[in-house]
Every structure is written in structure tokens, then in C-alpha cells.
Amino acid sequence: MTRTVTLEDLAARIGPGAKIAVAPDYAGVPMALAREIIRQGPGGLHVVCVPSAGMIVDLLIGAGLVTTLETAAVTLGEAGGAPRFQRAVRDGTIRIMDATCPAIHAALLAAQKGIPFMPLRGIIGTGILENRPDWKTMQNPFADSPDPIVAIPAIIPDVAIFHAPEADRFGNVRIGRRRELATMAYAAKKTLVTVERVVAGNLLHDEASAAGVLPSLYVDAVAVVPEGARPYGMWSGEYDTDSAEISRYARMARTEDGFREYLGLAALEPAR
């Protein structure tokens, strides 16, 4: 049974060293949860962007909580590059595992199916493959002539996190057509969700929209956090992305001091 908990309790379920899958900017970014994670400070995180991310990852990196980042891209969109990410890459303070979008989807799909890897076209001859010793090129076992194909190992996140418009009291969560959220949850050992609201009734009872609902079977805990994606917007229409706020962050986060000031931190505590 899914538990409805406070935001503090939700974040407390993420321990140091966890491998966390994070929703992309267009699918409900759990920003409030990220700020609470930063307050609690579990270090040594391995963050997997599904398949790319923006400010949420920049915040976690800036707060010193990330040791490994697996992503197809990190950007603040119109506000430009992600400053703490860029800095950490240049200084070598995080281990970057550059990927490409479909490879991250495929790795999660392998986890969803309980298989060790997923073969994928493309990628051969890229600098990405060259720098991913964990990805292997193999011969297509069904071809008679040479046909190299890349095997992407499964990614099994310890935790998947995202923000959604609504859950019911059983823990079923509306994800609409944001199917990557289901992929993350199927693949992860644990899924933690923040929602705008809890609705009456059972979301699975409406046949017309049940396919856009992630069943509570895959959801470990839900916290009600209105506007939990801000400054990112919600695809379900509650609010739009606040570009001015993201730009303000981009400017402040250019320096370490500005970053701390943005977060309201006097000084960063070392990660626990």
C-alpha cells in the first residue's frame, strides 16, 4: 500500500549513495523534493536523467550531493547552460557518464523487463561509446554478415522521483501521456512522488483515462506538495514554466556565492 507522507519523510527515504532517476523538464520536475533533499543532504548520489534535465540537477550538483551523473544533456533551456554542472565538469568534481536519450530509455526498459541489457542501433563511432566502457558492441546473433550493435546494460535506479498533478488515496498517480514516468517507476526499486493534490475516488475506475495512471503497485510514497514543480511548469496545465525565475537562477548560480545565496544557504554543509 502506498503511503501518503510529508515532504520531509519523502526526502528522508533517499539515503546517501542512492542511484536516483529524475524526470525531465517537460514531465513534472520534483523541484520542491530536490530542495528538501538538499536540506537533508544525502551525499554521493548517482543521478540518472530520464533522459536529460535542467535546474534540478544543477541544484543537486551545486549543493555537492552528486558524485556521478548519467545524462543525455543538462541545460537551462532559454536561460543557457547549467552553471554548476558546467563548473563541476570542468573541475572534474563529478563523474560524467554522457549518454544519448534512447540509450537511457533502453536501459530503463531492460530493467522493466528484468533482462540484463537492451540492444540499440546507432551510437557506433561516437565519443559517447568510446567513453562508456559499460556499453558493449556485439555482433547481431541473428545476422549472417557482420552487423555490430550496441548492448546497453539495464539501469536499476534505487529511487525514481517525479511530480504529478494528482494521486488518489490508494496511491494511484495520474501521469497522462508522460510515459517516461511509468518507465522510471517500472525500472526503479522505489518510486517517490510529489503531487499537486489528492483526489476523491479511484483513478483506475475511469476506463477512459486509466491508461494514463501509474498504479500504486509501483508507487512507494506520495507527498502532497502544491506547486511542487516550480519554477518548472506542469504539463497538466496548473502553471507554466517561470522562465524569468530560471534566468534569475542562471545568473546567480554563475558563482558559488551566488548559488548559495539563491538557495538561502549561509554556507554549504559537507555532505553526510
Binding site: 533522459p51 554522457d98 534512447p102 540509450a103 551510437i123
Partner: peptide, 8 residues
Amino acid sequence: PGSFGSAY
């Protein structure tokens, strides 16, 4: 930012 889906 990174390669996004280009490698595919």
C-alpha cells in the same frame, strides 16, 4: 548541454 538523441 550534451548529445541528446543525436548519436541515434
